[in-house]
């Protein structure tokens, strides 16, 4: 599904990368607040859902080749992070929905887990 469809599904507001909403498509997603877990277990090209709005959420998405970030529970990334995301071409979306609700809606819409199960014990 397109990122625009994700935005509608999660009742989200796009704060960076508006121009990519129709072009980016999402097949897999992962949810985490610990960035090392994202770096350890996720594959590239996925959607990151997080309640962590620090600069590290963006650098993690950038380093791990993620397509976009959804900030859940009303979390807002600081202005510096928004500006950097805009420059790096990584869309940022914010929703007041909780993590569970977001994951549930995406799963129901056919989005799959981003994890590389072979990396987990």
């Amino acid at each position: 599904m397109t990122l625009r469809a994700v935005q509608a599904l999660l009742e989200a507001r796009t704060v960076a990368g508006q121009r990519f909403l129709d072009e980016v498509t999402i097949e897999t997603a992962g949810a985490a607040d610990l960035m090392s877990d994202v770096l350890a277990y996720s594959r590239s090209g996925t959607l990151l859902l997080t309640g962590l709005a620090s600069a590290q959420s963006l650098s993690t998405a950038d380093i791990a080749d993620m397509k976009a970030i959804i900030y859940v529970r009303g979390k807002q990334p600081p202005a510096e992070v928004v500006a950097q995301a805009e420059a790096r071409g990584i869309p940022l979306l914010c929703t007041t929905l909780g993590m569970f609700e977001c994951c549930g809606r995406l799963y129901q819409a056919g989005v799959k887990d981003d994890g590389d199960a072979s990396l987990r014990r």
Binding site: L34, M35, S36, D37, L39, A40, L52, S54, Q56
Partner: peptide
């Protein structure tokens, strides 16, 4: 540090991997 998303004790293992 954990509030910044790090401190899971996975950093060095991630590098090794």
């Amino acid at each position: 540090m954990r509030s910044r998303g790090f401190g899971a004790g996975m950093g060095l293992p991630n590098i090794r991997r």
